[in-house]
Simulated scan of single mutants.
Amino acid sequence: MKDMISRTISWILVVDLGLVLAAFAWFMAAVVGRSMNLNLGLDLWYSLWNPLILPAISVLMAGAIASGVMGWIGRKFGSDPTP
């Protein structure tokens, strides 16, 4: 059960990382496009910042911190077999 939950959380974090990287690539392309007077959706990106992108970054950071803490606790109390 613990293994299945761990794999599910890892899968969600991988998908979330993909979303964050795609948002970053879109932002970079839109900024370059704006400097060349091309509309590549920078205003739309800004409108999605609070409801979508910022929570995705927050979930990714919280998941990374939680994973690190769980690994540390597992090693500290000897329940994690990886060194």
Score class of each variant (00 low, 15 high):
L48P: 12
V20T: 07
G71N: 07
S10H: 01
G74Q: 00
A25T: 14
L42C: 11
L54R: 13
L19D: 07
I53C: 03
D3P: 07
L52A: 15
I57M: 14
P55Q: 08
W49M: 10
A56F: 15
P55M: 10
G33T: 13
M61H: 00
S6N: 07
L21K: 04
D80R: 11
S67G: 04
G33M: 12
K76W: 14
W72R: 02
G41F: 09
S6M: 09
M1Q: 15
G33N: 13
L52Y: 15
T82N: 07
V32Q: 01
L48N: 09
A64T: 09
I53M: 04
S79N: 03
P51H: 06
S47F: 14
L19E: 09
A30F: 04
G78P: 06
G68N: 12
R7P: 02
M36F: 06
I53Q: 02
S35K: 12
A62P: 02
A64I: 08
M28A: 14
M70T: 03
K2N: 06
S47L: 09
D43T: 09
L17N: 04
G33F: 08
S58N: 06
M70I: 06
D3C: 08
T8Q: 13
N37R: 11
Y46V: 05
S58V: 05
M4H: 08
A64P: 04
G33Y: 08
M61D: 09
I73R: 00
M61L: 10
L60F: 11
V14H: 01
L44W: 14
S79K: 04
I9T: 08
L13S: 02
L52C: 14
N39T: 07
N37F: 10
M28Q: 12
S67A: 04
M28V: 15
